[in-house]
Design a protein around this nucleic acid. Structure first.
Lengths: 160, 160
DNA sequence: GTTTCTGCAAAGGTTTTGCAACAAA
DNA sequence: TTTGTTGCAAAACCTTTGCAGAAAC
């Protein structure tokens, strides 16, 4: 498991008098095994592939824990479901662009966004912004130009 | 009822072969009676104040309809609940700042945001952005400076 | 040993749906 | 008339919770 994740988790556990357990390790391993976003139920599936006895309740409880210590963040990617994003430790300022053609999610960082957030926030009579999120939905340029798009083809293939 | 709302709704209804009903009128009236955001259950309450026989199912079905024709938009204001925003007809580009001290939501428009969205989207290989949303959460400047904030005092008063 | 944690199953809350009666066009 | 709409109640989801036994420290 990634060193920084371990460190932050341990710090949070001990500061709160909480315990390190086998289940929490399994769920954390599952959550950060890739950089993909996931829903609670998907995390349960991943976790059960590592240890099939992990319960749904513990997954939900651990999700809350991981959000509290900043390792995960809830993100609204549209599509009417809350997803969890495991990439904020590495990219604390990133945002999301969602492809309207194939639903793929592109993470991006942009130095101008932070400045803009800051200006807007102050202008409205607030102190430095604490939490910002930006979501863009757009159509794929490649698909529109060439009539095909790698992601979309791959997706169709999966569905077939 | 606002003329533009009526027009857009009628256009959508007739283009889809749908009907104008007493219930839909009531729910639309309730939804746009103020510029406040609301949850489904809150809309049901408002609608029932106008006509107490309106059913929950019809409210949900009408919400879907109003989102489809662009009169409402779902917004994620944090706090783990989807809200509906009735103000996109008048301010199609607006965004939200949420006060961390009193939970009030400030809508804002900013000309730079659109440009930034546009640049980012093209740089990532997508066509002109279709749907954008930006959310900022921040602490109140007034509260921090003077130890008090009108909104917050009003809120405490309501809770007492 | 004490306190926290887990799994289970039940409960809670929100949204959707099948269906028969009803209403709009 | 025909087709879409409604209300109801049940179902479908997703998430939380009470509790007794198990595990961490």
């Amino acid at each position: 498991m990634n060193e920084r994740i371990r460190q932050r988790l341990d710090a949070h556990l001990s500061s709160q008098g909480l315990r390190r357990t086998k289940q929490r390790d399994v769920i954390v391993e599952a959550a950060f095994s890739s950089d993909e976003h996931f829903k609670a139920e998907e995390l349960l599936d991943k976790a059960r592939k590592i240890d099939s006895t992990v319960s749904r309740a513990t997954v939900y409880r651990t999700l809350t824990l991981l959000v509290e210590c900043g390792l995960l963040r809830q993100v609204d990617l549209g599509r009417d479901q809350i997803h969890y994003d495991p990439n904020f430790l590495d990219k604390p300022q990133h945002n999301h662009l969602i492809c309207l053609d194939c639903d793929r999610v592109v993470e991006f960082e942009d130095e101008h966004v932070a400045l803009l957030h800051d200006c807007i926030t102050r202008r409205l009579g607030f102190l430095q912004p604490k939490l910002m999120s930006m979501r863009i939905e757009a159509h794929c340029e490649e698909l529109s130009r060439s009539g095909t798009c790698k992601q979309r083809d791959a997706q169709k293939h999966r569905q077939a």
